[in-house]
Design a protein around this nucleic acid. Structure first.
Lengths: 333, 333
DNA sequence: CAGAAAAACCGAAACGTTTCGGTTTTGAAA
DNA sequence: TTTCAAAACCGAAACGTTTCGGTTTTTCTG
């Protein structure tokens, strides 16, 4: 049905290899170039990427495995990456693993079978074992939001420790002493880093850390809701909360809202990500924001570099900074 | 490097065709089955989907083109679909076209070149011209949120007219007479339908329609912000607003918030989608919600049916209903 | 204009499957 | 034990490219 390279060869009287060479940017005599281009237009030929992939072992496809598609931080990064990668002819297959190690491994295997050229992962499994097959096959791996020392891969990270410290510093400077932290699972790198920032800020200020004020939840809205409820019940002395990702910020707001706790009079709050959400709340929320576009661009460029150059240079780590967006949700006491 | 079917054939002493037949569910003598399975395990063979694709003309890949990945309605649907499709061995390539017809066409062409087996689209271009090549190639097309009479395809839709009517009815029943509508571009089907619902509700109640109260914006947060600002400036008589998608609901809240307009005392509001957002606001928001999971499931099943059965039955249309989630953002006046 | 170097061209083989048509094996019935 | 249909098996060809090694054509040099 569809025209093949052979049809072009016949039509132009040239050889197969010549057409192939033309298609891949090789040199062709001017008059032949014209003939080929005419034939291509006439038969509206398009190279069959599948056949090409069989020969070259490249599918021009990149796999992306993330913990949650319904997480605005993830989708913003994906949007940005997809844009850049598509412009370079790469398709992106996104798999959502629901923050589940087993599903994550399955997703990676799925993508491996699909023979993607490389993989981008915001890992749930901190050992990186699931990525081993990509490492063995020498296919590039780019990690977001974590370091995987056991795997040869590049990482793009945000300075989460600093981010959390900035947030907690603000609360301390406003006189708060009993500050609740709602963060992610202990085994997740970003959550640990954010906890470290919290700890550092408190100890620098000479405030004793009360482990009861730290909620290790699961980065979901629902998780935050139950975590915050328990925290408030057990520790009425808390005057400020810092929620360490967007979903948990939302969960925190839901609880405060449903309990009729007014912000910032009865509770000061600092959230994470999603500027629009922060602006839509009343009073507006003070938040820490991550540079999602920059992350996306870095990740895309990093994997493209590995893919095109294929250089076996040492793994790179790239750190990006967060920002504070000041709202009216912190009270000076 | 990787084992091929040939290696399995050699190792087992069987023929190529037999191995292939086994791999595709054909019958094999018990002792051969064991040999084959042993060989597969030993060489850890995996069929090369690219080579298979070249022969069968199937890539087991489905393209998805949506207007915005940063739109929670879209991501929820994608999450659901991806889940179902992946379980059936299909990969999903998602392209975000930024609500731009040209980019949409490019995305579809990109996917066509990638030889996806079928396409799922929430179309920006209402003519459907961009999908023509899929129709010609007889590759299944499933449309979300719109009908494309000019293209042979299945559609999964939500009863948007009814959704909007329900919302406006609530406002009318609470005594509102000057109701602002913030909806999408006139040429977008869902926006038109939602407008129709608004119109129907008002005229059934015998209320004259004031075109000045209708904002046709672009379904984005930013668009809603400027639209609502203009609306409020020009029409101080408005006592209630209905925002007809999630992003515009957020935009509406941002403006009301920044202007210090209290809800529901000074303005009643009904929004759209995202239950968590509605719950996180104070007071909680009354919203219309769409059954995203059901939509996702329907879309996935529809395309799988077409793909597996390949039956040339007539295009199907499937309608799903919305729900109202009652909050405290509507005042009885 | 001859000769040589460079550029352009060429067909065959290969990538790893599926499928076609035909052959062998199996085992149940006679 | 023979017969024969059904089941299992088989290799070659094909899918549409790229690439290898070698041939032809062009262009440049003296």
């Amino acid at each position: 049905m569809a025209a093949t390279i052979k049809d072009i060869a016949n039509r132009t009287g040239l050889g197969l290899a010549t057409i192939s060479s033309y298609l891949n940017g090789g040199n062709v005599r001017e008059k032949n170039r014209q003939k080929i281009e005419a034939a291509i237009k006439e038969l509206n030929f398009e190279v069959n990427e599948v056949a090409r992939g069989l020969k070259t072992n490249r599918t021009h496809t990149i796999g992306v495995v993330i913990p949650e598609l319904n997480n605005i931080f993830c989708t913003e990064i994906i949007t940005g990456m997809e844009d850049i990668l598509r412009k370079k002819g790469y398709a992106t297959i996104v798999c959502d693993c629901r923050t589940d190690k087993k599903l994550e491994r399955e997703a990676v295997e799925f993508l491996y079978r699909k023979r993607v050229d490389g993989i981008i992962n915001m890992p749930v499994d901190s050992t990186g074992a699931h990525l081993k097959q990509f490492e063995i096959a020498k296919k590039p791996i780019v990690i977001i939001d974590r370091k995987l020392p056991q795997i040869a891969c590049d990482s793009v990270l945000v300075d989460n420790r600093d981010a959390a410290k900035k947030a907690v510093d603000i609360l301390i400077n406003n006189g708060h002493r009993h500050i609740g932290l709602i963060t992610g699972p202990e085994e997740i790198y970003t959550a640990k880093e954010r906890y470290n920032g919290y700890e550092t800020a408190l100890s620098e200020a000479g405030i004793q850390i009360d482990p009861g004020l730290v909620v290790h939840s699961d980065y979901t809205i629902r998780g935050a809701v139950s975590g915050v409820e328990k925290l408030l019940d057990a520790h009425p002395e808390v005057t400020a909360l810092f929620a360490a990702n967007y979903e948990m910020t939302m969960g925190t707001m839901i609880v405060l809202n449903e309990r009729g706790i007014s912000i910032p009079e009865q509770m000061s709050v600092i959230g994470f990500d999603n500027r629009e959400f922060a602006r839509a709340l009343h009073p507006t929320l003070t938040i820490i924001t991550q540079p999602t576009e920059a992350i996306a661009a870095q990740v895309a460029e990093t994997i493209l570099d590995r893919l095109e150059q294929g250089e076996q240079t040492a793994p790179k780590e790239l750190y990006l900074k967060t920002e504070v967006m000041v709202g009216k949700s912190v009270k000076n006491i």
